[in-house]
Amino acid sequence: MRRKGDLPQKTCAACARPFAWRRKWARDWDSVRYCSERCRRGAKSPGAKG
């Protein structure tokens, strides 16, 4: 079992906040770019702010 602080982290492409690995992203961690569904949706609309 890993501690929460030992998990890999990335920076969200929309809001620039750091987010940690989650089990549901295990298979496609390399392609994850956004910390949440809200950031993912907001990045696609042209006038959105993070």
Rank of each mutant, 00 (worst) to 15 (best):
M1F: 07
M1Y: 12
M1G: 07
R2W: 10
R2A: 05
R3L: 11
K4W: 13
K4R: 14
G5S: 13
G5P: 06
L7F: 08
P8D: 08
P8R: 07
P8G: 07
Q9M: 11
Q9F: 05
K10M: 02
K10R: 13
K10P: 04
T11L: 08
T11R: 10
C12L: 03
C12W: 05
C12E: 04
C12Y: 08
A13V: 04
A13P: 00
A13H: 03
A14V: 00
A14S: 08
A14H: 11
A14Y: 01
C15V: 00
C15I: 01
C15S: 02
A16Q: 10
A16V: 00
R17V: 01
R17I: 01
P18M: 00
P18W: 00
P18G: 01
P18K: 06
F19P: 00
F19M: 01
A20D: 03
A20C: 03
W21M: 03
W21C: 02
W21F: 10
R22D: 03
R22L: 06
R23I: 02
R23Q: 10
R23D: 06
K24C: 04
K24T: 03
K24R: 10
K24G: 00
W25R: 05
W25F: 10
W25Q: 06
D28A: 05
D28K: 10
D28T: 02
W29I: 01
W29F: 03
W29R: 03
W29N: 05
D30S: 12
S31L: 05
S31C: 03
V32G: 06
R33L: 06
R33Y: 08
R33I: 01
Y34F: 15
Y34D: 06
Y34K: 06
Y34C: 05
C35V: 11
C35P: 07
S36V: 05
E37S: 14
R38M: 09
C39N: 12
C39D: 14
C39T: 08
C39M: 12
C39H: 13
R40C: 06
R41T: 14
R41L: 14
G42C: 09
A43F: 15
A43C: 07
A43K: 12
A43P: 09
K44N: 13
S45N: 13
P46F: 12
P46Q: 12
G47H: 15
G47T: 13
G47S: 14
A48R: 14
A48F: 14
A48T: 14
K49F: 11
G50H: 15
G50I: 14
